[in-house]
Design a protein around this nucleic acid. Structure first.
Length: 372
DNA sequence: CGGTTTTGACCAGCGC
DNA sequence: GCGCTGGTCAAAACCG
């Protein structure tokens, strides 16, 4: 891994989540990240997650931008003319015509994720993977809680010492807690009741077929941890957005079932524009961003055109192999959702222009659902 | 030198 | 209550 600092290579997410959607999770046809290929997107509509758009050749803004609630429109420009919804994000938002409608169909399943209570309460509901295979879902409440705690704890520790930048990020929310606990490391913070538990940030996960674990989504990330994943030979990496005040996190891990699949889970919303695309997106139109954040905005950052072209080709190839991972427990549901989504995109020319994605409706490889 | 990655340790939550 | 697991921290190492 490259450790060099500043690499932007790592980044991922460019999605902006906005408010809550109604769907829990839907899988969208994958999009490829810059890194490599396309995959299926699995996102939690409930939280409003958006799928990453194929960045590369498509020009425009990043995934996030795509999703960017703020709307601007990027998609249009980027996707050859498609300009209906200002962004995919919009598409998925309530207005999502069919999808939305179907969304209903999409079941929200509580992610059994580890049975964490929170799962149910919180948003991580995921659509269950109908297909066993895929699902990523995010979920974790535990994480959320524990995070806080850990942080607190750590902060306590660090209070003496220095701290990190992290504080800024989560800071706001957690700082208070920290303050309260100023004691020694052993002092614990007051326990929270379930109700008090910190609410989880919206999460959205998607799977991507890629050789590269950490996909570049236009944002800068800093790795803050890595853990071995149970029942998987591949470790899970934890990243945090490096922008001050932005507490977005993401987890990246490779599927044990299919090593070629990388599961990326985003948590939280970026409070800033993608560093790569200061103004939004290169290709994208004004406000919003479009797809393709990667090569975005700052011309200086843009790769040579031929590179882009090459990249695009790669993406296409990858996308061809992309799977649409469903997460719905009920096949019907899932299928419907993803199919709908895909259809919608295709109908609008998005998929066509982007690449022909294979819609494998439900599934891809029947594997057991993975939980996070 | 600044920023990132690595990695061992710690803690909370959860299941049994 | 105990053990396991997930998530996070932070010191040290690294890199450009």
């Amino acid at each position: 891994m490259a450790r060099s600092g500043g690499e932007r290579a790592n980044n991922s997410s460019a999605f902006t989540m906005s408010g809550g959607g109604e769907l829990d999770e839907i899988m969208l046809p994958g999009t490829g990240f810059s890194a490599a290929g396309g995959g299926g997107i699995y996102y939690d509509m409930q939280q409003m997650m958006m799928p990453p758009p194929p960045q590369s050749g498509f020009g425009g803004g990043g995934f996030m931008e795509l999703l960017d609630a703020s709307g601007g429109g990027g998609c249009g420009a980027d996707f050859g003319g498609y300009s209906a919804p200002s962004s995919l994000f919009d598409l998925f938002q309530s207005p999502f015509p069919s999808a939305a409608a179907n969304s209903t169909t999409v079941q929200q399943l509580d992610l059994p994720m580890s049975s964490s209570p929170a799962a149910a309460e919180s948003s991580e509901v995921v659509n269950n993977p109908a297909t066993p295979n895929s699902s990523i879902s995010s979920s974790s409440n535990e994480g959320g809680n524990s995070k806080n705690s850990s942080k607190d704890r750590n902060r306590l520790k660090s209070e003496a010492g220095g701290g990190g930048d992290e504080e800024d990020e989560d800071g706001e929310e957690e700082q208070d807690q920290d303050k309260n606990n100023t004691g020694s490391k052993k002092q614990l913070k007051p326990k929270k009741t379930k109700a008090q538990k910190k609410q989880r940030e919206p999460r959205f996960a998607f799977m991507t077929k890629s050789e590269v674990d950490h996909l570049d989504d236009g944002y800068r990330w800093r790795k803050y941890g890595q853990k071995a994943v149970k029942n998987s030979p591949y470790p899970r990496s934890y990243y945090r957005c490096t922008s001050a005040g932005c507490g977005v996190k993401k987890r990246v891990e490779r599927s044990s079932d299919d090593p070629s699949v990388v599961v990326t889970t985003y948590e939280g919303q970026h409070t800033h524009p993608s560093p790569i695309t200061p103004r939004g997106s290169l290709l994208a139109g004004g406000g919003g961003g479009g797809i393709g954040h990667l090569f975005a905005a700052d011309p200086s950052i843009l790769p040579p055109q031929h590179h882009i072209h090459h990249h695009f080709q790669q993406q296409q190839q990858l996308l061809q192999n992309a799977y649409v991972y469903n997460s719905a427990p009920s096949l019907t549901t899932t299928t419907t959702a993803s199919t709908t989504t895909a259809s919608f995109l295709r109908d609008n020319g998005l998929l066509q222009d982007m690449v022909t994605c294979q819609m494998m409706g439900n599934v891809v490889e029947p594997k057991e659902e993975q939980r996070f």
